[in-house]
């Protein structure tokens, strides 16, 4: 009996060791430990064993079973690992094959520039508002201290619908509409389409966009205007950006200025983009003219304000180095995809 068990054990372990897959291992398990397996057969023969030997033999059988099971388990683990290894090996892919993309669309460069501006000014506490694109002559001109017969009202600049209604030539009328609401203080920007009677070419378009800014409060100063726009320029063009304010003239601001920023391409050394000057003209601004405040029922003795106007296309063209304004309105997807 002992020899038989020994034999079963040796043979089983030998078979287990030489098996090379999990199926075979299972067959061995059934053949040895199954209902009709060899070891089970031995157990069935226990009734022939003398009663006093039974515990001993029983112990022997159990040891044999335990040994075989341990071996089986050991082998099973080893084979599983091997199989997983093999599977992983067979599943190698060419990671340089093309990606499966969603082909997400692209935002217009004007909008990207506008969102940048909005982000900056909203962060400074400005509300973004809108006004009509077809506008009363009063809001577009008169209320902005551009009286009838002012050269800026010349037909060559303004599109007229009739003698009272025009296509707004600037976003400044939104200033007046906000001031008229009578809610002070005001911190707003107003982006939008504006129209001027310019023939289409590489640098002109009869329709383009501006972003108007207006701050009205007690104690607002020209120094505040400088500080605000300097911060804006740094956020838009980079921390090292320098600004320069030059006196200028606009009918609805006094004092007025134009702001240049240090060229963000050459850093101010002078290049093609800044025409060698190191500076790029970015916007017009100034302190709101007392006449404009008065017309909008704001007391200029009590309140001051500043305003600025930014050409959105100008920012987009400069920032993204687009050399022809017409590209912005052709909507060629090969152009749009670059943004």
């Amino acid at each position: 009996m002992k020899e038989r068990l020994q034999k079963i054990r040796e043979e089983a372990i030998q078979k287990i060791q030489s098996s090379d897959n999990l199926d075979k291992l299972n067959e061995i398990k059934v053949a040895v430990l199954g209902k009709k397996g060899e070891l089970t057969e031995v157990l069935k023969g226990m009734k022939d064993v003398a009663a006093e030997d039974r515990p001993k033999v029983g112990q022997l059988v159990n040891d044999t079973r335990a040994a075989i099971e341990t071996k089986l388990e050991e082998m099973k683990k080893k084979l599983s690992e091997m199989e997983r290894e093999l599977k992983l090996k067979n599943e190698v892919i060419d990671v340089t094959l093309p990606a499966k993309k969603n082909n997400v669309g692209h935002r217009h460069p004007n909008t990207i520039a506008l969102e940048e501006l909005q982000r900056i000014f909203v962060g400074m506490g400005y509300e973004v508002v809108e006004g009509p694109e077809v506008e009363y002559d009063y809001y577009n001109f008169e209320a902005l201290n551009i009286p009838a017969n002012h050269p800026a009202k010349d037909e060559q600049d303004t599109f007229y619908i009739n003698d009272k209604i025009v296509l707004r030539t600037q976003t400044s009328p939104v200033q007046v509409r906000e001031m008229e609401k009578g809610k002070l203080p005001i911190r707003m920007i107003a982006p939008g389409r504006v129209f001027r009677s310019d023939e289409v070419d590489a640098t002109h378009s009869p329709s383009f966009h501006q972003v108007e800014g207006l701050v009205i409060d007690k104690n607002i100063t020209f120094a505040d205007l400088k500080g605000t726009l300097a911060q804006f320029a740094r956020e838009l063009f980079g921390e090292d950006t320098k600004v320069k304010f030059r006196p200028h003239h606009f009918p609805f601001t006094e004092p007025s200025a134009e702001m240049d920023v240090s060229c963000f391409k050459c850093g101010g050394k002078g290049c093609r983009m800044c025409k060698g000057s190191g500076w790029i003209e970015i916007l017009g601004c100034g302190m709101v003219h007392p006449k404009v405040l008065k017309m909008s029922n704001i007391n200029p003795e009590e309140y001051h304000g500043f305003a600025f106007g930014i050409g959105l296309e100008r920012i987009a063209l400069l920032k993204y180095e687009i050399d022809d304004m017409r590209l912005l309105y052709e909507n060629d997807t090969r152009f749009l995809k670059q943004f």
């Binding site: 692209h106 935002r107 004007n110 129209f195 009869p206 309105y329 749009l336």
Partner: peptide, 10 residues
Amino acid sequence: GFSQGMSYSF
């Protein structure tokens, strides 16, 4: 997959 275009108002 749509890209943004802009066209004239007139």
